[in-house]
Design a binder for these strands. Structure first.
Lengths: 189, 189
DNA sequence: TCTAACTCTTGACATTTGTCAAGAGTCAAG
DNA sequence: CTTGACTCTTGACAAATGTCAAGAGTTAGA
């Protein structure tokens, strides 16, 4: 399981960093069932997760108790509540396993230590942060500039994995529309 | 003008860094009129801007040619198209001065050099990146989990500066609703 | 100070999307 | 394999939001 992370880091950095074993030794593995919460809104997020296998959903609840999904993460993705994690304050989001998952996780303390002590780890973190920010910027722009039908088409073109691997209910919660509307828009494609 | 940036960096870092003069010397000042574009969709973004005075709007156009605003930036904010800037590829967004502005800007080359050579500058960049990512995550969650009326109330509570300083048309483009809807929702408050 | 351009508001109506309900279909866990 | 829970789809209707138009108000810049 840890070899997947080793491969991921080596590919990202371009070569096998000298301190890689030190980095890898800070992670612990974790297998979860479908439906398990890794983080509940209001709790302090103590870990950064790396997905070896499976899928995570990051969401909030609206006033009616419906899930509103900010993002889905698949294999080789890094997941945490950035603000809550960095500042060790209550998180604003839920993180849930929507498939049985094989995960690796690193605790807050060793994460901070690696950022200080291993420049390449810090650089990797910065790179992932930039990519995450960029993705989120795109997401904001699709939410404000596209109507529901255009968002469905956009999702099919740019994130086919979400369309094919996840349920309609989850996809609708990601697009910010009701499952019924999604059904109707799909029939218009 | 440069003293404002000096103050901003010193406050962020906690103390006056030794290389500060080297950092400051890489910036050039720029005064703009209202309505001027600093970046046009499709052009390569060559600068990171720091706002001494004024307000910038970052937006895209929808299929009808209406502006859809991702973010507004005011005094002491840093603005660029992250992905386009980092990779020097065409940008996906417009950046426009919506007030007469006093700006400082740093070119791509010296920016990269400072990130490499001045660790505190790199750390500052990382910090701003984390804060920006966090803000954008919140923005996604408000767009998907709140309806139009709730978004208006949310904006008044958390970003009163936008509500008081900018025109209704701009505010509506930020909330993802039409100016007419905004007028009607405000009368329901 | 003046003025042309832009903005705000309101009404009438169209369109989009949500809600509720019910039946058929699907799937994961035992 | 079985089964109970969940999901998908469809229809009817309600609610939210957009579009268009027009008049009043406001403002940036000469």
């Amino acid at each position: 399981m840890i070899e997947i992370l080793e491969k991921h880091i080596t590919e990202r950095i371009g070569k096998r960093p000298e301190n890689l074993d030190k980095v890898l030794s800070q992670f612990e593995s974790l297998n979860t069932k479908r439906g398990i919460h890794l983080l509940t809104q209001g709790d302090v997020c103590k870990y950064v997760y790396f997905i070896v296998k499976g899928c995570l959903q990051v969401y909030v609840l609206d006033k009616n108790g419906n899930e509103s999904t900010r993002s889905f993460y698949f294999e080789n993705a890094w997941v945490t509540d950035i603000f809550g994690f960095k500042n060790q304050v209550p998180s604003s989001e839920f993180v849930k396993c929507i498939e049985p998952c094989e995960l690796l996780r690193i605790h807050f303390e060793p994460f901070q230590a690696l950022c200080r002590e291993v420049p390449q780890f810090d650089a990797l973190y910065k790179e992932i942060l930039e990519a995450s920010y960029n993705n989120t910027v795109y997401r904001v722009n699709t939410l404000t500039s596209l109507d529901a039908f255009e968002r469905v088409k956009w999702l099919m073109e740019t994130k086919p994995l979400i369309m094919t691997r996840l349920s309609s209910k989850l996809i609708a919660s990601y697009l910010g529309i009701s499952p019924e509307t999604l059904t109707r828009l799909k029939s218009k494609l």
